[in-house]
């Protein structure tokens, strides 16, 4: 029986203003194309794999399919292209029905978009930069091999994946209510605009909720991680609120944006149970999701809840180590 692996490569590279304002690294589409080529090469570790690639309008997916190894059957998902995050969600919805594993090349945002519709299909998330929390910065060939092993069932998905948490966001305003979803972090920022999306200034951070916390991460999860460690697959999350000017609080060092080590004062933090709400009254601000400003709020109540219904993320190293243990790599 043939196995199908989905491939989502976000072509919207280079949108990070932190290249200008901070130390963000660069991953251009040529690098992504090469990484995708490595993924396809890695998939040839297993046999009888078909690959379906998310189409895009930029020509990146075309190149990936054109350059694919000749012994792989590589085609496109039949879907319209909108050149927005909607594409990742639509592709993932297709993969939810038709794929045995999916490989995502992008950042936290792309992984979140995929997570929204991917259901229980195992996800291999490869970071194409160094500024992400969820995806792993790892060689594409290695990741492709792991994806192939999980997709074919050579390594059972149940034993090789973790269930990542998410954060549910409900915004209630006079003009109506909005719900959005974050994967690793949701923040409330004191800034008027969505603007260039990135979180530029640590001083803007009012607080937030994270589904994972570790000082080894950049951004809000790293900030929370300075206070308490919370693994991505632990239920619940961590909520925190920074002290506003003049107020007292616990001083914490955090890597808030690439290239910036800041000291902030935490007025309150709380380890949250699954679905336990943590709220912010926002006279004027922006809700950020996975490091990107997403939603402008005026006189609103923002309620954040960690929820344990995120994507099943493939643990690449443990998949490969187990495969080696089972003799998979002996030719």
């Amino acid at each position: 029986m043939t196995t199908t692996v989905g491939l989502v490569v976000n072509p919207a590279a280079g949108r990070d203003i932190r290249r200008l304002t901070g130390g963000a690294s660069v991953s251009n589409n040529y690098a992504k194309r090469r990484t995708a080529g490595c993924v396809l090469a890695g998939l040839t570790l297993v046999e009888d794999v078909d690959v379906l690639v998310m189409p895009d309008s930029s020509g990146l997916a075309d190149r990936i399919v054109d350059d694919a190894p000749s012994d792989l059957d590589v085609g496109f998902v039949d879907m319209p292209v909108s050149a927005s995050g909607r594409d990742s969600r639509n592709a993932a919805a297709h993969f939810e029905q038709h794929a045995d594993a999916v490989v995502v090349l992008g950042g936290d945002g792309t992984t979140r978009d995929v997570a929204q519709t991917i259901g229980d299909v195992p996800v291999v998330s490869i970071s194409t930069g160094t500024n992400n929390v969820v995806p792993t910065p790892i060689d594409g060939t290695v990741a492709g091999a792991a994806a192939g092993l999980v997709a074919t069932g050579a390594i059972p998905a149940d034993e090789a994946t973790i269930r990542h948490g998410t954060i549910e966001v409900d915004v209630e305003k006079a003009t109506g209510a909005t719900s959005i979803r974050g994967l690793a972090t949701v923040g409330v920022l004191d800034r008027a605009f969505v603007g260039t999306r990135a979180i530029l200034d640590p001083e803007d951070i009012v607080g937030g909720v994270v589904s994972r916390a570790s000082p080894a991460e950049i951004g809000l999860s790293g900030l929370a991680g300075g206070l308490v460690t919370h693994r991505p697959d632990e239920p619940g999350g961590v909520g925190f609120r920074l002290a506003r000017e003049g107020a007292t609080g616990t001083r914490v060092h955090g890597i808030t944006v690439p290239g910036t080590l800041s000291e902030v004062r935490v007025a309150d933090y709380q380890v949250l149970d699954d679905e336990e709400p943590y709220t912010f009254e926002v006279p004027r601000g922006v809700v950020s999701v996975d490091g990107e400003r997403e939603h402008e709020v005026q006189d609103g109540l923002v309620t954040l809840r960690p929820v344990s219904d995120g994507p099943r993320l493939v643990q690449i190293e443990s998949v490969l180590e187990r495969a080696a243990h089972e003799g998979y790599f002996r030719a």
């Binding site: 949108r15 990070d16 290249r19 530029l200």
Partner: peptide
């Protein structure tokens, strides 16, 4: 870097920086 040119706040912020 690339910004959404249909969003004046994004263009403004990028050029400001």
């Amino acid at each position: 870097f690339t910004v959404d040119g249909m969003d004046i706040t994004a263009v403004y912020e990028a050029v400001k920086e």
